[in-house]
Simulated scan of single mutants.
Amino acid sequence: MSTALTFAAVLPALLVAHAVGDRWAQTEHQAVTKGCAGHAGRVACASHVLTYTAVTATVTAIVCVALSLPVSLTGFLAGQAVSALTHYWIDRRTTLAAFVARFAPWKRNYYANVPGGAEHLDQSAHMVWLLVAALLTAVI
């Protein structure tokens, strides 16, 4: 039962941290540049993911300590690693666009042409991986 309770506490912590890290902690430069081709885009995305992960790690740690959750260091680090790596992959933009084209072609027009479509698919992809990160945090 403690694994289920840990998961139930860590997931909303990650979701709140995601909202803060992805919106408030991200600089305008990171937001505008992280999807660009080349070195500048990679650096902007990596710096965004670094600040984002600082937020998710801090919030998750505070929740785990405050609620005395039985989270191992390995589980904590695995959850944060999955969150960070997938966040980088999604936020490079061309990667998610290629994924949509290959595996969800019925969403290509939505992704490319509907106002906010790309961001909605971006955010829902982040949610999927935050679920995985919370599971890893709780079970490892």
Rank of each mutant, 00 (worst) to 15 (best):
A40N: 04
T58C: 09
H39T: 12
V49I: 13
V43K: 02
V55S: 01
H39G: 05
A54Y: 14
V32E: 08
A44H: 06
C36V: 10
A46V: 12
V32Y: 01
A54K: 02
A54R: 05
L50C: 07
L50V: 11
L50A: 14
T51S: 12
K34I: 00
T56M: 01
A37G: 14
A40G: 05
V43I: 13
T51I: 14
G41Y: 06
R42I: 10
V32M: 06
H29T: 14
S47K: 10
T56A: 10
A37C: 10
H29F: 15
T60H: 02
T58F: 09
C36H: 13
Y52V: 01
A46S: 15
V32A: 05
Y52K: 08
G41A: 02
A44V: 03
S47Y: 15
A57D: 00
V43A: 10
H29V: 13
Q30H: 12
T51R: 14
V49T: 07
V59I: 15
C45Y: 03
A44F: 08
Y52T: 03
A40Q: 09
A54T: 13
K34D: 05
C45S: 11
K34G: 11
L50Y: 01
A46Q: 08
C36S: 13
V55K: 04
A44E: 01
C36R: 15
T33Q: 12
T53C: 09
Y52W: 07
A57K: 05
S47M: 15
H39F: 09
C36Q: 13
T51N: 11
G38F: 01
V55A: 00
A31M: 12
V32L: 11
